[in-house]
Design a binder for these strands. Structure first.
Lengths: 232, 232
DNA sequence: GAGTGGTCTAGACCACTCA
DNA sequence: GAGTGGTCTAGACCACTCT
């Protein structure tokens, strides 16, 4: 007789692992399970809702709860500001601005930000260090229509990512993770050889539906990794 | 007067975006907010709980709810089976096993799986194709102590990842995402040039506390990307 | 129409940690 | 001791989609 939603969730997971409800099948309804476990329906509801959030089941009104498990693995990833990551690693963080200027966006950037080519954007190129090794090279484009204040800000000392987090907090985001070979230009900026592998994170953010910024974060593959750990 | 937890959550997000409670400050308690919005405390509780899951606030009993926003970005990632990903992309999937054998594990693998070097493991090297291009090269080690059935299974036609998902469903997992340059061996197996960038996913899984498998999935960087989209 | 999950309410008790 | 969030309950109504 399990009463807490954690117990119910664990019990359901055990039965799922045991194969009682194979992938593709439909689980019993909430009322029946609540009856089995002798608890309120809301308790079962919460357990099942979390299983759905974990990607283990899918739920529909009227159709019931279906076991998916096996389609793919869900995982939660945290992408930190360079300063924070470097300091978490116990290293000394240093920031350096290589270029900052106003300009009209190249086609690719205009597309990404949903702007036309006459709009004005801020381009920022900067570098983040961990101890005395380049940690991240950052190419950023800021939509001045969405963030006109940026026109007056100097990023000589202040990482634009940190500034934007203050100015437009809680924005929506899209991330794209890829790998690439370093071009000659990027290699020299990261103290690498041409062709060395880079781990690249591209991020676009929106604030109330309007594109704010598009940024490309390049890391020497050697020494950079994203780690996730998922229990479920 | 918002009554639904979604409305409450949205209202709180708006106030957070407006800077009413700056990062580091403590938000009002659940009872007060429930009073403000004219709803039950549980409704506020759910809204705040989701904000906490989104990484926007942190909550402690007695200490209250603190605004974090700005530490890092949380995102949800789904890593699919090769077959599923390839077919989702509208391409034709093909599987090919390059090697399968029993052996004792090299030190690195023994460490990863928590085994001693006399234990027996199954080594599988295989390749996944998308149309007629290599999509993923897979190096896998299976702990036969945890999965003795694997000793009798042929992976000539069946991807070991898919088999394991059936046999040990709902296991715990750890993922490490990195980039690397292709070695000569891996380059030829992926129809690449030596040094071309690879996007590498390493995954380890456990079932009821026991290490099941360790796998290294290597993708040509050109044409591989992981994408996440987060609204909040 | 009926049965599923989705959600809200009001009240209650618990667990924790601060003063 | 007091006040915070964490959770459970019982009952209710709603939204959806199947037949």
């Amino acid at each position: 007789m399990a009463t807490g939603y954690r117990e119910v969730k664990a019990a359901l997971l055990t039965r799922l692992r045991a194969g009682e409800w194979p992938a593709g099948s439909t689980m019993p309804g909430e009322v029946q399970l609540a009856d089995e476990y002798g608890c309120a329906r809301v308790t079962v509801n919460r357990a099942l809702r979390e299983l759905a959030e974990d990607g283990i089941v899918k739920r529909w009104r009227r159709r019931g709860t279906e076991v998916v498990a096996g389609r793919g693995r869900h995982t939660r990833l945290t992408i930190r500001q360079a300063r924070q990551q470097v300091e978490t690693d116990g290293k000394t963080y240093r920031y350096e601005c290589l270029r900052q200027r106003l300009r009209t966006p190249p086609v690719r950037v205009a597309d990404q930000l949903g702007l036309n080519r006459e709009a004005e954007v801020m381009e920022v190129l900067c570098r983040h260090w961990a101890d005395d090794r380049p940690y991240q090279l950052e190419e950023r484009w800021i939509n001045l229509t969405a963030v006109p204040e940026a026109r007056e800000v100097s990023f000589a000392e202040l990482p634009p990512g940190e500034w934007l987090l203050d100015v437009k907090p809680l924005s929506d985001a899209e991330h794209v993770l890829t790998a690439a070979n370093a071009t000659s230009r990027n290699a020299s900026r990261l103290s690498l050889d041409i062709g060395d592998a880079l781990f690249v994170i591209e991020r676009r953010t929106w604030w109330q539906g309007q594109a704010v910024t598009s940024v490309r974060l390049m890391h020497p593959a050697n020494g950079f990794r994203l780690v996730t750990r998922d229990v479920a």
